[in-house]
Design a protein around this nucleic acid. Structure first.
Lengths: 219, 219
DNA sequence: ATTAATTTTTAGTCTAGACTAAAAATTAAT
DNA sequence: ATTAATTTTTAGTCTAGACTAAAAATTAAT
């Protein structure tokens, strides 16, 4: 069965919302991320349920079926592989690739994405540290922590980010925070949970809890 | 102003039809290539005229404006650069890339296509020998002949094809006819204008006028 | 346990881009 | 120069995917 662009975008966003929780996903939360009105979302959920990609109970929210999950994973796989291509081969920065990958992820061709995978030498993570699902929809569990969970005086390595927005990524770049950086937590302020960090050979820097929450690390 | 997918496909096809002739383009000829009905074409032509991309006189056919031409050329540029990418970098054969490039040509990003161009080392022709328009919409005139126009006993080099369909390209591959091949016209049958050809060190082969017409050569 | 607030759904509309059937122009044929 | 054939346009419809406004469920608050 074939998927329209609109359907693909809904599935992708429902997948993202499912990831965080065991609960069913609310109409409103989908409306927010798709930038549509709740009424439009209800419409689409009924279509997706009809096609067997979500289970949907009126007023009770949705959940992806196995098939729906696989479609979502294949879109995410394409998105992340294209991001690797854009950064590794075309020389983009990590904060510039999201919008273009949003378009490229809808290109339909099994062979294309596998040839691309091979051309890129089968990368396991994208430029933001997010894991790339396999062709079979396997997604390696990396077990990263949020930097906000790291204890005082511990040292960790920056492995990824939990948010792809350009402004956030540009901020990290400005602070000299990039994948692989070694970080030591020097101070955690109880007032606002902001954090003082030492990066390798540099002067300490200062980040808000909001930033720390969106940085993924390995201890 | 922004172009929809449908609009881009119309502009591309009108461009192709304009190329052959000085005449205005008929509604029916567009309908045939877009696989739409004439009534739908009329509808769209009115929209395109409204946007200033074609000049359109009821019952008298259409013609691209300068702006329309530039849009069409930018789509063709993208199509051909992606084809080079697919063949050179991903290892596709020349008969496999058309459908994928039809999708990729609609990806919207100025920087992307220029970075791709540079990554591919600024190719001048695509895998079928078609010239790649520059960013400014300049398209080098290559002055190729159709093999069907070459005189008896003349020798020429295969530079391109006038048709991208997979079956045609597969036939050429089977006959060992690829870009750069040296060809000598051994015989031209007056009955059906079929042609006997010698390719470099090989046994002579035999092709129909229809095939000869779609092969582009330099003498 | 009601009532109020919030969320979700239904009903009805709109737009882009397709369609069919019929009308209007144009072109070809006597 | 008419008439016939062909091409193109108009008028009216349909579908996907959005919307608003109002109705119906659910959840929160007294």
């Amino acid at each position: 069965m074939t998927t329209s662009l609109a359907e693909e975008n809904y599935l992708k966003i429902i997948y993202r919302l499912c990831e965080g929780t065991k609960e069913d996903i609310s109409t409103n939360s989908i409306a927010e991320l798709t930038n549509n009105k709740a009424a439009s979302v209800t419409d689409m959920l009924q279509k997706l349920a009809e096609k067997g990609w979500v289970t949907y109970q009126k007023y009770q929210g949705v959940r992806l079926t196995k098939i729906g999950q696989n479609i979502a994973l294949s879109i995410i796989r394409k998105h992340r592989l294209w991001e690797v291509f854009l950064v590794e081969k075309l020389g983009y920065n990590w904060d510039e690739v999201h919008e273009i990958a949003e378009q490229l992820e809808h290109i339909e061709s099994e062979t294309l994405i596998n040839k691309l995978d091979s051309f890129l030498d089968f990368p396991k993570i994208d430029p933001h540290g997010d894991p790339i699902p396999s062709q079979e929809g396997e997604i390696p569990e990396l077990g990263y922590l949020h930097l906000s969970e790291v204890k005082l005086n511990e040292t960790c390595t920056l492995m990824g980010v939990a948010k792809d927005s350009a402004v956030f990524l540009q901020l990290l770049t400005k602070l000299n925070l990039s994948l692989g950086a070694r970080l030591e937590v020097l101070e955690i302020n109880t007032f606002d949970r902001s954090v003082s960090l030492k990066i390798a050979e540099q002067e300490p820097i200062f980040i808000s809890h909001e930033v720390a929450k969106n940085i993924l690390v390995k201890v």
